[in-house]
Amino acid sequence: MGFAKLILRRKTLLFAVGVLFSLVIISVFAPYFVPYDPDALRVVDRLKPPSVNHFFGTDHFGRDIFSRVLVGTRVTFILGLSIAAFALVFGVPIGVLSGYYDRLGMVVMRVIDAIMAFPAIILALALMAIMGKPGMVNVIIAVGMVWAPRMVRVVYSSTLSLRENTYVEAARALGASSARILVRHIAVNLLSPVIVQSTFTFAFSIMEVAALNFLGVGIPPYVPSWGGMMNEGRTYIIRAPWIILFPGVFLALSVLSFNLLGDALRDRLDPKLRNIV
């Protein structure tokens, strides 16, 4: 690896961590320091371009885009975290057990393959329709159900290779129970692939949540979210493109940072994962 590339790698990683750290701070504290109430309507100020008073301009109700984008960070991160957690809670146990018990694995993986035959957004849309109404919990379930099978796959293939290790054989020879082997020898070593996959799950799920909100089937429109703001801005896209520009930049920056972090973690923790994750 060339020297230039190493620096580039470090620089990009530094960038990613910096962006994510700032976004976490923003998501926690934004409601306390944003210049305007994100929901306050000021019709006199409607569709104003970016200026010193309104850094990112205003929307068709005269709401301050800067304040709304910053406040929207919170809901994005809460949803991303919850979806990643959902994928973990369902994906890891199912994946480990399927990887360890061949017969179970054969059946489960067929079902997982079949679920993955439905493109991500189509499955999420169908689940939203089935659950009936927009809302945070429903979005978490819908998008979580899309990403949990992918987590199962990663954990499954890692378990398959882990269980062939000599130390697993040794543990079995010493009379360790399956439960003990699964927890003490396999689950512990799954940490790296699971962390890496969770990072990617986070990245993809916030993109998908934004898409659902953009289509008007995610969380209710009165909660400021990046996707929802872009949806509302569509009617005014030619007159006031900033309504869409800024939430999109924040979304792209977050996804990019998580992808960069995921790549770096994968290379760092276990380069072999390249073929799995």
């Binding site: 493109p241 869409i244 792209a252 996804v255 990019l256």
Partner: peptide, 25 residues
């Protein structure tokens, strides 16, 4: 190589609907 890689990574992080809207503008 490096700029193409970076562009590819950025490309994979941009939501297609946002890119579409910006191209439309």
């Amino acid at each position: 190589d490096n700029s193409l890689l970076l562009l590819a990574l950025a490309g994979a992080s941009i939501p297609s609907f946002w890119l579409g809207l910006m191209l439309m503008v």
